[in-house]
Simulated scan of single mutants.
Amino acid sequence: MNRRPTLLAALALTAAAALSLSACGSDDSSKGKGNDKIAGADTGSEAPVSPSPSVSDSAGRPKITFPSDAKNVFEFEKTGDATKDAALADSALSVNSVDEAIFEGSVDTKALGFYNADKALSASITYALRYINKSDTWVGETRYFDYKVTLSGDNKAYVTYCSDESKSYIKDKKTGKVDNTPTTANAYVLYNTGLTRNADGVWQTANIVSDRGAKACQP
């Protein structure tokens, strides 16, 4: 079983937004993987890179740390729009914050509530606790790709992307056993997310819907 054995709780975006993002995911599939890759929104690099899990800055953003045997890779390039790029960067940090809670064995981490809000925060806490209560964690590498971002006014954004969990696996903290089961279609997940920019300028993930095994994300 790959490292996300159950779906992240599906939460309702507005109907129009959900349909729009799903359409983006379908378009990505028709183009093939590798197109529209987005990476390191604040690195200036044109090549796909992975924002560091330990990103922090002078604005009081919490430091996020990962163990040496786990890694998230976010494949996206700058869009040329500063607002979209900021939303994409914070979307990646939202993902990292949930995984950090799993690694730390606690949902009281600073980053979890910093990058997530509302229904997405509640779902993230529930999701992380599934690991924590079973004394599970994960190891390996998870890849995030085929990003699309749409703005709605000054403080709302919708981001869709895929994940590839074929190289990441559940690990039992008590025994150290890693569940290296074969990869299936369920290792690929389509995410539709809604973000809201708060008063401090942080793009918090507020809503999220996931579709495990989505055809749009299959290799």
Rank of each mutant, 00 (worst) to 15 (best):
D118N: 14
L129M: 15
K156H: 11
I64S: 09
R61A: 10
E104K: 15
E100D: 11
A157L: 09
Y144L: 12
I64M: 08
V55S: 07
I132P: 09
K134T: 14
N133Y: 13
A117F: 09
G113Y: 10
Y115T: 13
A89K: 12
K171T: 07
K78E: 12
D172W: 01
P53G: 03
S91A: 13
N186E: 10
Y161K: 00
A117R: 14
S54G: 05
I64H: 01
Y115M: 14
S56H: 10
K174A: 07
K174G: 00
K167E: 13
E165P: 00
A128K: 11
R143E: 15
Y144N: 12
Y188Q: 04
K63F: 01
G60D: 01
F74A: 03
S52Y: 06
D69H: 02
T83D: 11
V107G: 08
S124Q: 07
Y158S: 07
F114S: 11
V95Q: 10
E165D: 12
Y169E: 08
V55R: 06
N72R: 04
S58H: 03
F145D: 07
E75L: 12
A120E: 12
L129H: 13
A120M: 14
R130Y: 09
E100S: 11
D172A: 03
N72Y: 05
D154P: 07
K148G: 12
V95R: 08
K84S: 04
K148F: 13
G105L: 08
A128H: 11
D146F: 06
V178L: 03
S52K: 09
K134L: 15
D179I: 01
S168F: 06
E75P: 00
G80S: 02
T175H: 10
N96H: 14
F103L: 10
S56K: 09
S166P: 02
F76R: 01
A86D: 11
T150Y: 11
A59C: 02
A120Y: 07
S168L: 04
S152C: 05
P62W: 01
E104W: 00
E104Y: 03
D57G: 06
C162P: 01
T160N: 02
D99G: 07
Y158H: 06
D179V: 01
S68W: 00
D118L: 13
S168H: 02
D99H: 12
Y158F: 14
D118W: 10
V139E: 15
G140K: 15
V159R: 05
T142S: 15
D146Y: 05
S124G: 11
P62D: 04
F103E: 08
A187L: 06
E100Y: 11
D146Q: 13
E100V: 14
K119Y: 12
N133T: 14
P182L: 05
A185D: 12
G113A: 11
N180G: 00
S58R: 04
A89N: 10
F76H: 07
S124P: 03
A70I: 01
L129S: 13
S58Q: 08
T184V: 02
V139M: 15
L190E: 06
L129C: 08
G140S: 14
N180K: 12
V189H: 01
T142D: 14
S56G: 02
T126P: 00
D118C: 08
L88W: 04
N180R: 10
K177L: 05
L112F: 07
S91K: 10
A117P: 10
